[in-house]
Amino acid sequence: MPLHVPPAPAPALRSVLAALGSAATLHEAVLTPALRALPGPKTAELPLPVHVLDRVTSGGRPPRTRLAGWRFLIRCGERYVAAADTRLTADGWVFSHFFEGPYVTATERALRQAEGLGKNYQPRLLSVPELYMLTLWLHGAVGADAAAGLPAAADLLVPLAPAPPGIAAYRPHPVSELLPVLTHRLTPRTPPVPPSLAAPAA
């Protein structure tokens, strides 16, 4: 079934298109040689809101998410060669930077995989900075505001490659299953209490 890709804020899209049309911006994009080297028109597609997972604790309180930006995949010809991030400022949405790397192809692969799951989802990205982890968040409420909301228990999280050790990339996990794993990894371990010096000798 098709994914319901949410519309990005118009100023965010305009800022990316302006950056793509700026020779100076592309020349300065040192981390994206493909944007400079590949000829032909380049388009910004598949806008995805990027949420950050905050306040993951073992105390039973639900974690919080915050919208960090919108990401666009940049197509040149038949393939995606880079991505563009935007951020919110006091003056509205603005272009942030271009980048290449494994998360571009990983996002495309995960989106293609999600289209075959047989259920309608609203795709988002969910970042877990402490684990250097990025997931495709498949939100079941397809008509929801893409800039808000928390992961529901039945939503799916698809870790993108490279994933943290012990977590399989591209395997869809219900939030109810993966979130406890993330909580365990992010919860500081309590150091063992040393035996009391006052304890009687055996």
Results as ranks from 00 to 15, higher is better:
180 P>A: 03
176 S>A: 15
189 R>Q: 09
147 A>H: 10
132 Y>W: 15
2 P>S: 06
175 V>F: 10
100 E>F: 06
202 A>E: 13
159 P>D: 05
201 A>K: 06
90 A>V: 12
188 P>D: 01
132 Y>G: 15
72 F>A: 00
160 L>N: 03
136 L>I: 03
128 V>N: 04
46 L>T: 12
37 A>N: 08
81 V>I: 10
170 Y>D: 14
162 P>V: 02
48 L>Y: 02
161 A>K: 09
147 A>G: 13
46 L>W: 03
77 G>K: 09
116 G>C: 03
78 E>M: 04
109 R>K: 11
189 R>M: 10
103 Y>N: 03
184 H>D: 11
36 R>C: 04
53 L>M: 03
182 L>K: 01
135 T>R: 02
123 P>D: 03
156 L>H: 07
22 S>D: 15
90 A>L: 15
96 S>H: 13
145 D>G: 04
65 T>G: 11
39 P>C: 07
21 G>A: 09
57 T>V: 12
37 A>G: 03
22 S>C: 01
146 A>N: 07
31 L>R: 12
40 G>R: 08
88 L>F: 14
122 Q>N: 00
3 L>M: 06
194 P>M: 02
9 P>V: 06
191 P>I: 02
53 L>W: 01
60 G>S: 11
140 G>K: 15
129 P>R: 09
132 Y>T: 15
167 I>K: 05
85 D>V: 03
15 S>F: 08
61 R>F: 15
10 A>N: 12
47 P>L: 08
158 V>A: 05
41 P>S: 11
162 P>L: 02
50 V>D: 06
11 P>W: 04
161 A>Y: 01
160 L>D: 00
158 V>S: 02
118 G>I: 09
16 V>L: 12
82 A>S: 02
128 V>H: 00
119 K>S: 15
20 L>Q: 09
